[in-house]
Amino acid sequence: MKNKRAVIVMALAILFGLAAVVMASRWLLTQPAANAGRIVVAAVDIDIGQRLTPEMFKLVEWPAHSVPKGAFDDPKKINGRVLRTSILLGEPLSEAKLAPAGTLGGLSALITEGKRAITVRVNDVIGVAGFALPGNYVDIIVSTETVAPAQPEPGAPRQQSISKIVLERILVLAVAQEVNRDETKPRVVNAVTLEVTPEQAEMLDLARSVGKLSLALRNQVDPAAGQTLGATKQNLLPAATPTLRPVAMPVPAPRPRVQAPRPAPQRDCVKVINGLHASQECF
Score class of each variant (00 low, 15 high):
residue 68 P to L: 12
residue 33 A to K: 12
residue 240 A to Y: 12
residue 77 K to I: 11
residue 102 G to L: 05
residue 26 R to I: 14
residue 191 A to T: 15
residue 200 Q to I: 09
residue 53 T to E: 05
residue 148 A to D: 08
residue 217 L to D: 01
residue 194 L to D: 01
residue 267 R to H: 06
residue 28 L to C: 04
residue 216 A to E: 02
residue 57 F to N: 01
residue 183 E to N: 13
residue 215 L to N: 01
residue 27 W to L: 13
residue 63 P to W: 02
residue 167 L to R: 07
residue 192 V to H: 06
residue 213 L to E: 00
residue 86 S to Y: 04
residue 35 N to S: 11
residue 62 W to Q: 02
residue 253 A to T: 06
residue 29 L to K: 12
residue 29 L to V: 08
residue 49 G to M: 01
residue 169 R to N: 06
residue 118 I to M: 09
residue 13 A to N: 03
residue 140 I to R: 04
residue 97 K to S: 11
residue 151 Q to P: 00
residue 17 G to Y: 04
residue 77 K to S: 15
residue 146 T to I: 14
residue 109 A to V: 06
residue 96 A to W: 01
residue 62 W to I: 05
residue 46 I to N: 00
residue 173 L to D: 00
residue 281 E to G: 00
residue 259 Q to C: 04
residue 106 G to L: 11
residue 39 I to L: 08
residue 123 N to G: 06
residue 21 V to C: 10
residue 189 V to K: 05
residue 198 P to V: 07
residue 162 I to G: 03
residue 40 V to M: 09
residue 175 V to C: 03
residue 21 V to R: 08
residue 34 A to I: 14
residue 152 P to V: 05
residue 271 K to E: 14
residue 42 A to D: 05
residue 273 I to M: 08
residue 40 V to W: 02
residue 186 P to Q: 02
residue 76 K to H: 13
residue 180 N to P: 02
residue 4 K to L: 14
residue 254 P to H: 07
residue 173 L to M: 09
residue 112 T to K: 13
residue 161 S to Q: 14
residue 86 S to C: 04
residue 48 I to P: 00
residue 226 G to W: 14
residue 41 V to F: 02
residue 39 I to P: 00
residue 58 K to H: 04
residue 43 A to N: 03
residue 151 Q to N: 13
residue 21 V to D: 05
residue 119 T to W: 12
residue 81 R to G: 03
residue 32 P to F: 04
residue 240 A to R: 14
residue 23 M to H: 05
residue 133 L to E: 00
residue 202 E to L: 10
residue 99 A to S: 01
residue 62 W to M: 03
residue 170 I to D: 01
residue 101 A to G: 11
residue 282 C to G: 05
residue 239 A to Q: 14
residue 155 G to R: 09
residue 176 A to E: 09
residue 40 V to E: 03
residue 117 A to M: 07
residue 52 L to Q: 00
residue 222 D to H: 05
residue 251 V to Q: 15
residue 122 V to Q: 00
residue 149 P to T: 08
residue 135 G to Q: 07
residue 132 A to P: 02
residue 68 P to A: 07
residue 223 P to W: 08
residue 132 A to W: 02
residue 225 A to H: 09
residue 1 M to I: 12
residue 111 I to G: 00
residue 51 R to Y: 10
residue 116 R to A: 07
residue 125 V to D: 10
residue 64 A to V: 12
residue 8 I to W: 04
residue 260 A to W: 08
residue 228 T to D: 12
residue 12 L to V: 13
residue 57 F to K: 04
residue 66 S to C: 10
residue 168 E to L: 07
residue 230 G to D: 06
residue 148 A to E: 12
residue 182 D to T: 15
residue 115 K to R: 15
residue 261 P to S: 08
residue 27 W to G: 11
residue 180 N to W: 06
